[in-house]
Simulated scan of single mutants.
Amino acid sequence: MNKIAEDIINAHGGLHTWLKFRQVSATLNQGGALWGLKGKGGILDHTTVTVATDVQWASHAPFGTIAARSDFTTHRIALLDGDDEVISALEQPRDSFAGHALDTPWNDLQLAFFAGCAMWTYLNTPFVLAWDGVECEDAGTWQENGETWRKVTVRYPDSLEVFSKAQALYIGPDGLVRRLDYDVEIAGNTPGAHYVTDYTTVEGIRFPTRRVIYPRQPDGQRMAEPLVVSIELSHITLS
């Protein structure tokens, strides 16, 4: 972990505090155009999400009326019933997205994979910068919302399942993440600009409770519409 990562992590509560916990759980409310575009509107609008902090694992419970919960890991996705029996599962789920564009419909396991990968990454940011193989470096400054943000490029190792191996974080004057940029490889490399606001403190850790994602233009500016995804988190707990 270099000095850039250390500074960002310290602003969010520090690695020492983060390592006391193994899971983050929150009530999740979602909206935006993506879910209907993929033919999966309403399934994960209101649920609970839980992610691990020491391994790559996430779960949404319930998974609509389809399953009691989902089970996302780096190389597998599954849907489970109330007795934790497997309803359906897929090994190497990323391969199933070959040839997908933004408007390609998903099946239930693909939705579970996308949602699990997304929420694991979001709730572990920026502490994932301390993981082995994750690299970050300064990429200059960026002007937005009347502030000067520090842009930091991030590269993830092949050992982690993320939307794209090359991403960017934008850091506000207070050291907190303001925005994330990535190209969603499993949706035709669709470029997104992901904004985080409304921070709260839980057990000494700073979490944004509101996220909105818009298309990103070639010059880095966001498009005003459509709102691709909206996320609101409440009742955040660490254990």
Rank of each mutant, 00 (worst) to 15 (best):
G31D: 12
V51T: 13
A193D: 11
W149Q: 02
K165I: 06
A187C: 12
R222N: 10
P62M: 02
D45Y: 05
G133F: 06
D45W: 01
W57S: 13
A68F: 00
T53K: 08
E144Q: 11
I77T: 10
Y122G: 11
I77P: 02
D158C: 09
T209M: 13
K3H: 13
K165G: 06
N10Q: 15
Q167G: 06
S164L: 07
G82H: 01
E91P: 02
D174Y: 01
G172I: 00
P215D: 07
K38G: 02
S164Y: 06
A224C: 13
A58I: 05
A67N: 04
R69T: 05
G146A: 08
E232P: 00
V212D: 07
F63I: 00
G36I: 00
N145A: 15
T48F: 01
V162F: 00
Y182A: 15
E6V: 06
H194I: 10
Y156R: 14
D83H: 09
L15T: 02
G41N: 10
A98C: 04
L34H: 09
D54E: 13
I186A: 06
L80Y: 01
A52L: 05
E232D: 12
A187I: 08
T48A: 03
W106Q: 02
I213D: 01
R22K: 14
D138G: 09
V49M: 04
D138F: 01
S159R: 10
L233A: 08
V134H: 03
G32W: 03
F97H: 05
M119N: 15
K40L: 04
T50F: 02
T48R: 11
Q110E: 07
D54N: 14
V55M: 05
A130V: 06
N29P: 11
R94P: 10
R76Q: 11
T53L: 13
Q221R: 14
S234P: 08
G42E: 04
C136Q: 11
D183V: 07
F97E: 03
S230N: 06
A33M: 12
V196C: 11
W57D: 09
P157D: 11
A26G: 02
V177L: 12
H100L: 02
K151R: 14
G220Y: 13
R22A: 14
G13S: 14
P173W: 00
A11M: 12
R155W: 15
R222S: 15
D71E: 07
P208R: 10
D103N: 05
A89Y: 00
V152S: 10
V162P: 02
E203Y: 06
N2D: 15
D84Y: 08
A166N: 15
A187H: 04
R150D: 01
P157M: 13
Y195E: 13
D158M: 07
Q23M: 08
D183L: 07
C136W: 07
G146H: 08
G146D: 09
L238C: 14
T125R: 04
Y156C: 14
S234E: 13
G32Q: 11
P218Y: 09
S96I: 00
L227N: 12
S70D: 02
I66Q: 04
G99P: 06
D83S: 11
F21Q: 04
L80N: 03
D45G: 14
K151G: 06
H235D: 15
M223F: 06
R76W: 00
T65H: 00
L79M: 02
L129E: 05
G82K: 01
S239T: 15
N145W: 00
H12P: 09
